[in-house]
Computed example of a mutant assay.
Amino acid sequence: MSVTTIGFDADDTLWHNERHFQLTQAHFAALLADHADPEHLMDRLLEAERRNIGHYGFGIKGFTLSMIETAIQVTEGRVPAGVIAEILDAGRDMLRHPVELLPGAEAAIAALEATHRLVLITKGDLLDQERKLAESGLGERFHAVEIVSEKTPETYARAFATHGHGPERALMVGNSMKSDVVPAIAAGAWGVFCPSEVEWALEAAPAPEGAARFRTIATLDELPRLVKDLG
């Protein structure tokens, strides 16, 4: 059962993403320095993000709304309008930030696109993900693009059945153990973990060390060799 379809995550697998969130969080902490220490503020923000994912989904817009909610909470409703305006500006700056490909991303896709069906499977805000894909220059090299609200075993089973020969002959590579690796393996595919420099706490999960279809690579440069070895 050779691999015929390869699924790629987008954010922090093909291009930088989480470090922009980290920089914005540092700015947010500076704005609220008179009301909460940075560690406490980040804990409150993470709680808000966890609460709000079901309402706003993943992405910059939900993150911005969570920052505003946290600012209101830690100031007991006294947050100045100027601070809210700066938070909104920070969110817009993130939405305008140029796409920066990660090392090995373009080379890996170039090496695999002629021999395998490539599918981008990413979650997040539809407009922002479409913008980043267009700016990345990689869009036309994928056979299909799936922008989903959540990544579950059912998501991967459907995507790989629709765009390939089913999950048994598919491989998913990404930086999130929780979203890219564990559910892909549960669907019957190979799950390849490619760690990023910064991990979002809500995407952390234990590695499926006992799973026969679990693999780890340091960078995407290693992916073509791994795919070849798997057959």
Results as ranks from 00 to 15, higher is better:
residue 129 Q to N: 12
residue 25 Q to G: 12
residue 158 R to F: 06
residue 151 K to D: 09
residue 203 E to A: 14
residue 166 G to M: 02
residue 105 A to Y: 07
residue 114 A to Y: 09
residue 157 A to P: 02
residue 94 M to R: 10
residue 108 A to N: 09
residue 177 M to Y: 01
residue 6 I to D: 02
residue 192 V to F: 02
residue 50 R to C: 04
residue 219 T to M: 08
residue 147 I to Y: 01
residue 146 E to L: 04
residue 135 E to Q: 15
residue 212 A to I: 01
residue 103 P to K: 07
residue 68 I to P: 00
residue 58 F to S: 02
residue 226 L to S: 03
residue 162 T to G: 01
residue 103 P to M: 05
residue 174 G to A: 02
residue 44 R to E: 15
residue 42 M to K: 09
residue 22 Q to I: 10
residue 115 T to C: 09
residue 33 A to L: 08
residue 105 A to L: 09
residue 186 A to Y: 05
residue 175 N to E: 01
residue 125 D to N: 15
residue 206 P to F: 10
residue 32 L to C: 11
residue 208 P to Q: 06
residue 208 P to S: 06
residue 50 R to D: 10
residue 79 V to P: 06
residue 33 A to S: 15
residue 41 L to N: 07
residue 50 R to L: 04
residue 40 H to Q: 14
residue 215 R to E: 13
residue 4 T to K: 12
residue 145 V to I: 15
residue 93 D to I: 08
residue 162 T to Y: 01
residue 225 R to F: 01
residue 178 K to Q: 15
residue 112 L to C: 13
residue 82 G to H: 13
residue 150 E to S: 12
residue 170 A to L: 02
residue 18 E to I: 03
residue 10 A to E: 05
residue 81 A to W: 03
residue 90 A to F: 04
residue 91 G to T: 05
residue 198 V to M: 12
residue 38 P to S: 12
residue 56 Y to D: 10
residue 76 E to G: 09
residue 217 I to R: 05
residue 90 A to D: 13
residue 164 G to I: 02
residue 54 G to I: 05
residue 125 D to V: 11
residue 218 A to N: 12
residue 12 D to Y: 05
residue 116 H to S: 02
residue 119 V to G: 03
residue 230 L to F: 04
residue 181 V to M: 08
residue 113 E to L: 07
residue 100 E to F: 00
residue 48 A to S: 15
residue 133 L to M: 14
residue 184 A to L: 10
